[in-house]
Amino acid sequence: MIEVKDLYKKFGKNEVLKGLNLTIEKEGIFTILGPNGSGKTTLIKSILGMVLPDSGEILINGESVKKQWNYRFNIDYMPQIANFPTNLSVDELFDMIIDLRGSEKRKDDLVKLFGLGEFLNKKLGNLSGGTKQKVNIVLSFMFDSPIIILDEPTTGLDPVSLIRLKDLIMSEKERGKTILITTHIMDFVEQISDQIVFILEGVIYFRGTVGELKTKTNKESIERAIASILTETYA
């Protein structure tokens, strides 16, 4: 369970989060949407403790995350940009994170699923962007934590891997996990999300299912629905 209460954060003069409240009580797939700079990544990073909020509170399973680090054993996170130490091989990177974090549950299955077998001994510096992203995916799913946070997971993936990722996310949901995803690919949103959390100007503007969003805005497609929210507020 994730509770975000009255979260404020500014970077210099730029106020990104302006009293954001969000409670996620149950399992499911929650896509976090919003225009560029609306505070999606800031919200995610605040939950992870990478960004320190100016005020407000974040509770994971009822406990405040402030100055804590143990709670991160419950969270798997996949960052937007996958950039790893270039000198290490893929396998060494896996071993290192496993060493830091404790036992993995299913590295081998995931490696097989994304066809990384032949890359295990290659140096990370020599991998293509898409392959690095797959490494990133394996890293963030192998610990089998109850909360999964994915920041733009689809970047650079080929269609086959994209489908596998989608299936993987769905099966994680079936296993009772809470999954937060940010993305700009609306097809992806439509196919996987149980709920949409739409952030606009640092607060939550809309929360509900894809269907509810369409009814609310009276549009056929989710892309148009979101565009109409944006033009309404900016007009």
Binding site: L48, M50, W69, P79, A82, I97, L100, R101
Partner: peptide, 10 residues
């Protein structure tokens, strides 16, 4: 970037 990855770990 790698530091960011570590920061997200416990």
């Amino acid at each position: 970037e790698f530091t960011e990855l570590l920061l997200a770990q416990p």
